[in-house]
C-alpha cells in the first residue's frame, strides 16, 4: 500500500533536489572545478617528474669506465643566436664544478661530444655531429679503426681512413678507441648505416648514425678522470683556505684551541718557531694539539705575559730573534756580518 506513495515521494523529492532546489550547487560546482584544475596540474607535474625520473634513471644506469667518475648536467639551450656557427649545446655546469675543456660528454645511448669552452656556471658542448668534430673509433665487432667525422646536424657521420680491405658491416657499433686521450676507450659513438666504395679512393666510404637524438636530449653526463677530478675539490675549497700552494693546509684544519695567541705561548723549546729556512710558518705549528699531548701545564709554568695586545707581524719577528741562539750554527750562518766601522 505504501509503495506507490513512497515512489511518488521519492520522485518528487528527486525532482525537487535535482531540478529546482539549487542552493549551494554553484558554490559546489566552483569548488569541484578548482579541485579538478588542481588535480590536473598535479597530474601534469607528476607525469613530468616520472618522465624525468626515467631519464635520470637511464643516465645513472650508465656505468662509467674504470678510473672515471660521472656528473650529471642539464642542457640549457641548443644553438642560439647569429654567432652560433657550430653544432653546440649549453649545459648548466662549468668550471666551478670542475669542468675543463675537452671533458667528455655522454648520454645513456652513447657519446654526445666534448666541452668546447667553459664559464664558471656553464659550458658549451661541441657535438659529434659538427663538421669540426673528429673522434678516433674502432668497430666493435671487426676492430677496424678509423676517424669519425661529423657532417652537420641533418647528415650522417662519415668514417674516414678505413682501408678498402678492412672488414666492416652495416649495423656495427663504432666505439671510441681512446687514442686521442680525451674519451675513455669503448664508449659507443655511432652505428654503421652504409658501407661502400667511392671511385678511385684508397679508403671505404662509410656512413654512420649517432647513437643519441640531439633534439630530444635533456640531460647528459660529464666524465672525469678520477685523478683529474681530485684537484677540483681543493680548487673549490681554495677560497676557504687561502695560502701558498706549497704550504700545508694545517691552518685550515687546526682547531681553534690549538691556535693559541702568541702572547700566551710558553717560552719552551717546543714553542720556539722554526727558522724561516727550516720550513713552516709560526702559525702552522700545532704540534702539541695535533699529537694529543696536554699543553696546559706547560703553559702555566711560564710567567704570565705582561699585557695582552694585538699580535702584529712585527711582534712575531721580534719574538723570534731572542730564540735564535738556541740554534747557534744556523744563527751564525744567517747573521749578517757586522760591518766594520770606518767603512
Amino acid at each position: 500500500m505504501l509503495a506507490p506513495g513512497k515512489l511518488v515521494s521519492d520522485q518528487v523529492s528527486s525532482f525537487w533536489n535535482r531540478y529546482l532546489y539549487f542552493v549551494g550547487i554553484r558554490q559546489q560546482n566552483d569548488q569541484l572545478l578548482r579541485e579538478l584544475t588542481a588535480a590536473k596540474e598535479e597530474l601534469s607535474g607528476l607525469r613530468e617528474n616520472a618522465s624525468e625520473v626515467e631519464r635520470l634513471r637511464r643516465l645513472l644506469s650508465m656505468t662509467p669506465p674504470g678510473e672515471w667518475t660521472r656528473q650529471g648536467a642539464r642542457i640549457i639551450s641548443h644553438r642560439l643566436g647569429p654567432n652560433a656557427a657550430l653544432e653546440t649545446f649549453l649545459i648548466d655546469k662549468g668550471s666551478a664544478y670542475g669542468v675543463t675543456v675537452n671533458t667528455p660528454v655522454v648520454s645513456p645511448d652513447g657519446v654526445v661530444g666534448r666541452v668546447l669552452r667553459i664559464s664558471p656556471t656553464a659550458a658549451t658542448i661541441l657535438l659529434v655531429t659538427d663538421p669540426n668534430s673528429r673522434i678516433p673509433v674502432v668497430s666493435q665487432k671487426n676492430r677496424t679503426q678509423g676517424i669519425l667525422k661529423g657532417e652537420g646536424p641533418t647528415r650522417e657521420l662519415v668514417l674516414q681512413y678505413v682501408p678498402q680491405d678492412a672488414p666492416m658491416e652495416e649495423g656495427e657499433v663504432l666505439v671510441t678507441s681512446g687514442l686521442e686521450e680525451i674519451f675513455p676507450k669503448g664508449l659507443p659513438v655511432a652505428r654503421v648505416t652504409g658501407v661502400g666504395r667511392s671511385g678511385a679512393s684508397l679508403f671505404q666510404l662509410i656512413h654512420a648514425a649517432p647513437m643519441f637524438a640531439p633534439l630530444t636530449l635533456e640531460e647528459v653526463a660529464l666524465l672525469f678522470k678520477a685523478a683529474a677530478a681530485q684537484p677540483a675539490a681543493p680548487a673549490a675549497a681554495a677560497p676557504a683556505a687561502p695560502g701558498l700552494p706549497g704550504q700545508p693546509a694545517a691552518p685550515a684544519v687546526v682547531p681553534p684551541a690549538a691556535v693559541a695567541k702568541p702572547g700566551r705561548q710558553p717560552k719552551t723549546a717546543a714553542a720556539i718557531p722554526p727558522a724561516p729556512n727550516q720550513g713552516g710558518a709560526p702559525v702552522a705549528t700545532p704540534a702539541p694539539a695535533a699529537s694529543g699531548q696536554p699543553q696546559a701545564p706547560a703553559v702555566q709554568t711560564g710567567p704570565p705575559p705582561a699585557a695582552p695586545h694585538a699580535v702584529q707581524p712585527g711582534d712575531a719577528a721580534r719574538k723570534r730573534e731572542p730564540a735564535a741562539p738556541a740554534d747557534g750554527t744556523d744563527a751564525k750562518k744567517r747573521r749578517k756580518p757586522a760591518r766594520p766601522e770606518g767603512q
Binding site: 639551450s77 642560439l80 643566436g81 647569429p82 654567432n83 652560433a84 656557427a85 657550430l86 653546440t88 649549453l90 668546447l116 669552452r117 664559464s119 658549451t124 661541441l126
Partner: peptide, 15 residues
C-alpha cells in the same frame, strides 16, 4: 650574443 655564440669574442662586436 657573445655568450650564446660559439665564436671567439669579437664577432658580436663586429656584427
Amino acid at each position: 650574443q657573445e655568450g650564446t655564440g660559439s665564436l671567439a669574442f669579437g664577432a658580436g662586436l663586429l656584427w
